[in-house]
């Protein structure tokens, strides 16, 4: 078995072209190996010391978050907290302080767990993923990154170098909430993210909702705009979004929850995420993460 530490992107891409597996924080890869999920790969290249992958760059027509930015930074970075708040909500819920200090955004999305916390926020905010290999760079919509639980569509030799987000607009708000049974070291039982754009009167112009842990991958709820656009968020809208989320979910039963309970609670989470996103868009300060501020999940 071999382990190399890359300090430049080129070194990393060369190692990956040779068949090495990237490792960032290792909090999925190593922990999974210890739990017998899959043995450690024969060849590993550490990417967490590549400075250019650790940058958050805002301004211009895209906000760029490097793949090895960790959750501790995401939950406190002013750009993320101010403009992509749902992502900060999600990062703030990950594991424990130790997990958030080692776990990275790239690792979270590339690991491809349907229960990942940052996935649903990225979907509703229209994120693109930047993939690089020795052959070049491409971007794809994050929704196309996942094809099955624990799997992604990147080609062999491709490294995720950044997540790209559209620039912030006016009267935008987003939020991510998850159902959890305890307040630390938890995995989303179900989760939901919402992002909205309001008009000057507070009516919804644009709304998206995505769900975690209720399907083989993160899924976006179809038809949200038909349910809520054109008016301020009201009880009918909330109920309709909850129903849509519940009915589009295809959850499994496992030790954490039954399918029926997941189906019900993901509707509750969708409703609460949308509600918090709208309140934020209206200028209300709801501290990150919404789960703690509003007492959702293990309140």
């Amino acid at each position: 078995m071999s382990f190399a530490i890359a300090t430049t992107l080129d070194q990393a891409l060369a190692a990956i072209a040779d068949g090495a597996r990237p490792i960032a924080g290792g909090s999925d890869l190593v922990v999974g190996a210890r739990h017998g999920k899959a043995p450690l790969p024969e060849s590993l290249v550490a990417i967490d010391r590549i400075a250019e992958l650790a940058e958050i760059k805002a301004g211009g027509d895209v906000t760029r978050i490097g793949a090895v930015v960790n959750h501790a930074r995401l939950m406190t970075d002013p750009t993320v907290v101010g403009n992509y708040t749902a992502l900060a909500d999600a990062a703030a819920l990950v594991g424990s302080p130790a997990t958030r200090n080692v776990g990275t955004l790239g690792g979270n999305i590339m690991n491809g767990s349907p229960a990942m916390d940052t996935g649903a926020p990225l979907v509703v905010m229209g994120a693109q993923v930047e993939l690089q290999s020795t052959g070049g760079t491409r971007t794809l919509s994050i929704a196309h990154l996942w094809d099955a639980p624990g799997s992604n569509t990147a080609a062999a030799g491709e490294l995720c170098t950044a997540v790209l987000l559209p620039p912030p607009g006016d009267r935008c708000g987003s939020a991510y909430v998850r159902l959890e049974y305890r307040r630390a070291m938890e995995i989303a039982v179900v989760g939901a993210a919402a992002a909205v754009v309001l008009d000057e009167a507070g009516a919804i112009v644009n709304a998206r909702v995505a769900l975690a842990a209720v399907a083989p991958t993160i899924i976006e709820v179809d038809g949200i705009e038909d349910l809520v656009a054109g008016r301020a968020l009201d009880d009918d809208g909330r109920a309709a979004v909850a129903d849509a989320a519940s009915s589009q979910a295809s959850p499994i039963s496992d030790m954490r929850a039954s399918d029926a309970y997941r189906r019900h609670t993901v509707g509750v989470m969708a409703r609460r995420a949308l509600d918090a996103a709208v309140r934020r868009a209206l200028g209300e300060e709801i501290a990150v993460p919404v789960n703690r501020a509003l007492g959702i999940g293990a309140a």
Partner: peptide, 15 residues
Amino acid sequence: LNAGLLEYKLQTAAD
């Protein structure tokens, strides 16, 4: 089936 601390949920300091 849940012989481990991932799925056997103890309370944490935060709780």
